[in-house]
Design a protein around this nucleic acid. Sequence first.
DNA 1: AAGTGGTCTAGACCACACG
DNA 2: GTGTGGTCTAGACCACTTC
Lengths: 242, 242
Amino acid sequence: MSLEQAPGLPRFRAVERELTRRILQREYVAGEKLPSEAQLVAALGVSRQTVSKALSELAKQGLVSRNKRAGTVVTNHFHERFVLPLYDISADITQRGDIYSFSLIGRNSMRNADQGFAWAELESGASVLELELVHFANAIPVAHERRYINVEAAPSAFEQDFAQIAPSTWLLDNVPWSTVRHRITALNCPPTMAGTLQVPDGTACVVVERRTWHLDVPVTIARMTLAGDRLDISGEYSLATL
Amino acid sequence: MSLEQAPGLPRFRAVERELTRRILQREYVAGEKLPSEAQLVAALGVSRQTVSKALSELAKQGLVSRNKRAGTVVTNHFHERFVLPLYDISADITQRGDIYSFSLIGRNSMRNADQGFAWAELESGASVLELELVHFANAIPVAHERRYINVEAAPSAFEQDFAQIAPSTWLLDNVPWSTVRHRITALNCPPTMAGTLQVPDGTACVVVERRTWHLDVPVTIARMTLAGDRLDISGEYSLATL
DNA sequence: AAGTGGTCTAGACCACACG
DNA sequence: GTGTGGTCTAGACCACTTC
């Protein structure tokens, strides 16, 4: 019932680890009540704040659910909270040890709701900058990006040529935002894009669409098409190490 | 410089909100130092713990980076931490107001590394239970699932017929785990599966593969193929409301 | 009514990193 | 050296929920 204290490990982490261990090893099973904070304080010899911080951490991970009077209860469906890291293509490529580059292949000033494109959250006729890019890993095309920028939200975008700095990078450094929404779908690669990406027509590709707002003002839409099996999205999640 | 105190809003949330507001509205710009904890304590009239909790929260969101001696600095690339909610098909379908159901269409006891399937992390010859399912929304097939279960990690899986309880649900309730890894790819739907899912051959489908471990013991692999445009994966992330 | 978690404070010691 | 964040403690008040 004592606390294993590794050097350099904060006490609340030690508490968290101990409780995680007990849950994973089924000393506490789903639906069962954990000891109350007061009991843990007495049993582990730490302050209530320390216990509380550890328990809150477990609750944030979804391992337990905390309820007044009823106490802290072991959950049995904490997977619902799991998350995948957001896809960042240049970081991903660089991290794999490949050389990242990109090329701007299209640039177009337009008005919203023209040319077959309509940005629902933006009023018709609003000034929109459309960009088209290809991303490379070791000079091999791995993704196609079509991006729309709300010029009102980022006026200086007009002055950028996006030859050296990728739009995603530039936007990040120059335009604030507060909300982002993602959608992942699959697409049979149409002929033009297939040529650009150098894959056969109809190849199944993952499409990641990202829409960004700043305080209710739409900022940008990026639609990223990943070239078949040359790229994928992956992520790992682990509970506290035992 | 004072703190707007809404009723029922914890102070550390108020601090967090105030600092988020300043960052989003560029009162502090990327790279700039925030006031130190001590300064915020004096300026806002709250204790250091409260300020610290708020700042830690911002750091967890990636809005700021905290460094000893150098202080707390506004980040300009907090998007890297963004996450998508993990895909849970039955919850997703139910949440949309559709009726979820599933059907077990295949069951097979096998040995690892037989029949063209090899589970790299598991030794050859280990006993594996293979299941094949279809998931429906309003009786329309929306996903195909192929699942492998390491029988050693879940011996009682043999006794389950998985007619009423979906394998994912059963595993969740009966087998502990500590690590999960995901991979999202796209696939041109092969003929057999296309028939099952009632989509044309070659339709681009999103594939979500999920591998689960418990303390270094592989538990299960689930490969979920989403039927073309009938399902997608989406998620939203917002910073603290202003 | 009483147990439980949620929050807050004041004060303290420490490790770290920059000057 | 010294400012900074990281952590810990003891004690307190409160709101909520179930007993």
